[in-house]
Amino acid sequence: MTDEKPSYEQARDELTDVVRRLETGGLTLEESLNLWERGEKLAAICEEWLEGARARLAAAMSTPAADTKDAEAPF
């Protein structure tokens, strides 16, 4: 894998696959450990994306509307 950070969706989908493979079993201890470590990295990437999204939403919600009087009046 490259050093480029995957999108949230890519990381989530790969994490889902990692969990499925771990739950299925039949892996060697080394394979299981490698998958677990990859899953931990993917979970951290997902959390980073989600924290960024939360920050963006909080910033957007704290920005006052340009003209709240017009926004409240339908006409």
Rank of each mutant, 00 (worst) to 15 (best):
M1Q: 06
M1G: 07
T2I: 10
T2Q: 06
D3W: 11
D3A: 10
D3R: 04
D3F: 04
E4L: 00
E4P: 02
E4S: 07
K5D: 12
K5H: 00
K5F: 02
P6N: 09
P6D: 09
S7R: 06
S7G: 09
S7C: 01
Y8C: 14
Y8T: 06
Y8L: 11
Q10K: 15
Q10L: 11
Q10M: 10
Q10I: 07
A11S: 07
A11I: 01
R12I: 01
R12Q: 03
R12A: 10
R12N: 04
D13S: 08
D13I: 07
E14Y: 01
L15C: 02
T16P: 06
T16F: 10
T16N: 12
D17L: 04
D17G: 12
V18W: 00
V18G: 00
V18P: 00
V19Y: 03
R20F: 12
R21L: 10
R21Q: 06
L22S: 00
T24Y: 10
G25F: 05
L27G: 03
T28D: 01
T28Y: 02
T28Q: 05
T28I: 01
T28C: 01
L29C: 09
E30T: 12
E30C: 11
E31Q: 04
E31F: 00
E31D: 02
L33F: 05
L33G: 04
L33N: 12
N34A: 14
L35Q: 01
W36F: 14
E37V: 06
R38Y: 03
G39R: 00
G39L: 02
E40S: 09
K41S: 10
L42C: 01
L42E: 00
A43S: 03
A43Q: 04
A44G: 05
A44E: 07
C46W: 01
C46P: 01
E47T: 12
E47G: 05
E48T: 04
E48S: 05
W49Y: 11
W49P: 01
L50H: 05
L50E: 13
E51W: 03
G52T: 02
A53L: 06
A53Y: 09
A53S: 13
R54P: 10
A55S: 07
A55W: 06
R56W: 08
R56D: 03
R56Q: 13
L57P: 04
L57T: 12
L57I: 10
A58K: 05
A58V: 13
A58Q: 08
A58S: 07
A59I: 08
A59S: 08
A59N: 11
A60W: 12
A60V: 07
A60T: 15
M61A: 15
S62D: 08
S62Y: 10
T63F: 10
T63Y: 07
T63A: 15
T63S: 15
P64S: 04
P64M: 09
P64I: 11
P64T: 11
P64A: 09
A65L: 13
A65W: 14
A66T: 08
A66M: 07
T68A: 13
T68I: 15
K69Q: 15
K69W: 12
K69R: 12
D70K: 09
D70F: 15
D70N: 13
D70V: 11
A71T: 11
A71G: 11
A71F: 08
E72Q: 11
A73V: 06
A73I: 13
